[in-house]
């Protein structure tokens, strides 16, 4: 066990955990930030996507001792009231079916639009290909990303 000071959504949190603990489980079990989801644990589905200094990473294979003073942003920290452009676009397109993968999808989409504000269809597909939606809402997600990119 070791003590880590993590910067999550603009606040510093102290946790005492095994250094090999994935950030996913630190967020969920220790910080009660439950919006980041467990889907596969091996970086294959993207449900656990967070931002580390603004870049999309899979929190299930990001170990707590590798974070240092980097800024972690989770779905809870993306906006105050769900008013981030991407979240609003998701609501406008009424994307979700079961909804479980969507916080990871939104975090991947937000990171994509940070780097590339006007992606083409192909760029969206390539950037999002690591996020699985088992319900098959891919077309709506693409529409939502295009909606957000037009704002």
């Amino acid at each position: 066990m070791a003590v880590f000071n993590l910067n999550v959504n603009g606040k510093t949190h102290q946790v005492d955990v095994d250094p090999s603990t994935p950030v996913l489980w630190v967020l969920r079990d220790h910080l009660n930030l439950l919006g980041t989801k467990y889907g596969c644990g091996v970086a294959q589905c993207g449900a656990c996507t967070i931002h580390l200094d603004g870049k999309a990473v899979r929190s299930c294979i990001t170990f707590v001792d590798s974070v240092g003073d980097k800024q972690i942003t989770t779905i809870e920290g993306l906006s105050e009231d769900g008013d981030h452009l991407v979240q609003q676009a998701w609501l406008e397109q009424d994307v979700a079916q079961c909804g479980y993968c969507q916080s990871g999808q939104i975090m991947s989409a937000a990171a994509l639009l940070n780097e590339n504000p006007h992606p083409s269809d192909e760029e969206i597909e390539t950037a999002m290909n690591g996020n699985i939606c088992r319900c098959g809402t891919y077309l709506r997600i693409k529409e939502a990303i295009k909606t957000a990119s037009k704002v």
């Binding site: 980041t36 779905i75 909804g99």
Partner: peptide, 29 residues
Amino acid sequence: TSRKNVDGMGIVTGKPLFGLDYKVDGMLY
């Protein structure tokens, strides 16, 4: 007529809606 998902806002803001998110004090894993 089309009405939007009543859990839509909860889903896009990462609220603990799912079974895996359910927690109580003193809960073991």
